[in-house]
């Protein structure tokens, strides 16, 4: 069988397929500090992100939902990146990711090496939304944290 065209290899890097087949942190979380749901109505991709915060850090993160390989692999890679980082760093990562999708340029960010595999998606305008979904949902979850931030005891009811 002939080799796939290189354009396709740009999109579906081996590490992306690996995250799609064996997603990390793909589970439900009992009592997240904050969470958000994201949907891409054009193709029906959905991603939920649940975060457990402690001392300004992402103690634990989980994602759910369904969608194409790009949206699900991006979500899986996002959770690996974000876990253990501060809220500030997580936000920086989300912004860097969207920058990467807009410009197609590598991002000089510590721990972003694997995520660079998704840079090829920037060449596929129709798929940028798939890749960005998890990161936008992450931002939404972290933004939601801002509202009840003073009322930690009520977080469960804010789900």
């Amino acid at each position: 069988m002939t080799n796939e065209p290189s354009l396709l290899d740009d999109l579906y890097r081996e590490i992306i397929l690996d995250h799609y087949r064996t997603p990390r942190n793909h589970q439900e979380m009992e009592a997240p500090t904050c969470s958000a749901e994201g949907a891409n109505p054009l193709c029906g991709d959905t991603v939920t992100v649940s975060i457990l915060l402690a001392d300004g850090r992402v103690q634990d993160i989980a994602f759910g939902g369904q969608g194409c390989s790009i949206s699900q692999a991006s979500a899986s890679m996002m959770t690996e990146y974000v876990k253990g980082r501060t809220v500030q760093e997580a936000g920086d990562g989300a912004r860097a990711f969207q920058q990467m999708m807009t410009t197609g340029e590598p991002q000089d960010l510590e721990g972003f090496d694997d995520i660079d595999a998704l840079r090829g998606v920037a060449k596929f305008a129709a798929r940028v939304k798939c890749a960005s979904l998890a990161w936008k949902t992450l931002e939404q979850a972290l933004d939601g944290r801002a509202e009840p931030v003073t009322t930690d005891e009520r977080t469960e009811s804010n789900d």
């Binding site: 796939e4 065209p5 354009l7 396709l8 999109l11 579906y12 054009l42 193709c43 029906g44 991709d45 969608g67 194409c68 390989s69 790009i70 596929f124 798929r127 798939c130």
Partner: peptide, 25 residues
């Protein structure tokens, strides 16, 4: 394989199909 990925790979074979909800959610 998600339909979106099916369509993407088919495109590299120059096969044009539609993937998604087809405006019929």
């Amino acid at each position: 394989v998600h339909p979106h990925d099916v369509g993407q790979v088919l495109d590299t074979h120059a096969v044009a199909i539609r993937t998604g909800h087809h405006c019929a959610q």
